[in-house]
Design a protein around this nucleic acid. Structure first.
Lengths: 239, 239
DNA sequence: CGAGGTCTTGAAGACGATCAACAAACGTGG
DNA sequence: CCACGTTTGTTGATCGTCTTCAAGACCTCG
């Protein structure tokens, strides 16, 4: 059940068999969630953290005017609200974008891990640091990239992250979001999101039909995006 | 030396005397750094983490074109590159904006803390989670707020964070950055940064002379910013 | 087959960028 | 303590990117 998480962690450091057991035995109830359902809402005080096994979700912040900014996309293996274990009160929400299978890990079990498994604790901490690095990268994009470059960057990021959990086929992958949701992530209007997508398609960089994104020219897409995967910290090293 | 850090942590949870000792004894060399000097550069592999005791610094990401995006301002008490302890290779830089006094904590000492002081580990982890929350809030602003609202939000945030470390006088505080740097943080051009500042001044919301920001109407500034301090998680609670 | 959601297109307008020039403040050396 | 050079702040004009509004095409699913 927690294999995708193990793949993610193992891409950054060795994970001992004992640690795998600890994680596996920490997993509590499993739930199948439909698309567009809240996993956690702003203001919630969860007593368990939610791990995505399958599907796509988004972390978002809502404004009074109804505008929404998605601050991160979450994929299989992402411990989406590990944060709530220490932050206690959610300052943002997490919503599923597609049907998802999620596992809940009670906060008590996470606490046990911090008390008894320092190395595993560091790995979980690391995974939240990588979320932070992703936020920084998006922030840099929002402030200093144009729409096409930002979109290209997002596609490169998704591809790289999905590779880690073995969810790519060649340079193609499934990514079930609407253009409106994509716009909420890039800080663009739906109309401009659509036009930007067309631009990338016209350039022969990608195709995007239904749920399926195919990168047609990875090198040029990376160049347009100024994509450097360093911020994802995908290298095995003692942590 | 590490009092500002203790103030920050103590605003979120009780910090035991023993834990204070551990932190204090982890502090290594102290350094006085001038303004506009790099504390860490992208690509660095630090063996110690840097804590700001006094002054202002900025976390930034550089683009090939020379553009820069500041992703967070760092104040007294901020453990600016605690991240490097687990990320290992820096994916961004940290530069001082004013003269700073900084303390270095060797990674070995941080590792010891994770091995022997679970609660203190959780507090340090928490402080990096709050950095992440700040990133999300900025990202939401960059995507969905206009320039004036973003600027107002930043001022509210700085005020709130500086209160925690006792660096405000009434609604005024020192914040030594140029408008160009401010623009790099908000994702605006220098010219537009200037005009936006004038707008806030003309509205009677703030005055900003030299290094000194004074909030003239906190309620209205908060309203313009849609500022809700929840994301800073300033409440004492067992973590 | 119809209805709601999603995608696409056009036109007008706003917000912020860029370019250029000048004023004010600051710091440094004489 | 003043003179001068450099950095920072300010203003005006023009241009481009992205938003907003509106409407129509397409698609999917009951």
């Amino acid at each position: 059940m927690i294999e995708p998480l193990l793949l993610k962690l193992a891409a950054r450091d060795r994970v001992l068999e004992e640690e795998r057991q600890v994680l596996a035995s920490s997993a509590g109830r499993v739930r199948e969630v439909g698309g567009r359902e809240d996993l956690v809402r702003p203001g919630d005080r969860p007593t368990e953290s939610c791990l995505i096994v399958e599907g796509v979700a988004a972390r978002y912040r809502l404004f009074e005017t109804g505008r929404r900014q998605i601050t991160e996309f979450h994929l299989a293996g992402d411990f989406v609200d590990l944060h709530s274990f220490l932050l206690k009160v959610m300052d943002h929400g997490v919503v599923t974008l597609s049907r998802c299978r999620v596992v809940y890990v009670p906060h008590e079990r996470l606490r046990d891990i911090t008390e008894r498994h320092p190395h595993l604790t560091r790995l979980l901490w690391l995974s939240t640091l990588i979320d932070g690095a992703i936020h920084r990268e998006w922030l840099a994009g929002a402030g200093r990239r144009n729409a096409a470059s930002q979109m290209a960057h997002l596609i490169c990021e998704l591809f790289t992250r999905l590779e880690v959990v073995h969810l790519t086929r060649g340079t193609a992958f499934r990514f079930p979001v609407t253009q409106a949701e994509l716009g909420d992530a890039l800080g663009l209007s739906t109309v401009h999101t659509n036009r930007t997508l067309q631009e990338l398609r016209a350039e022969g960089l990608i195709t995007w039909r239904g749920d399926e994104i195919k990168i047609e020219d990875l090198d040029r897409l990376r160049a347009v995006a100024e994509f450097d995967p360093a911020y994802l910290h995908i290298y095995r090293e003692p942590r």
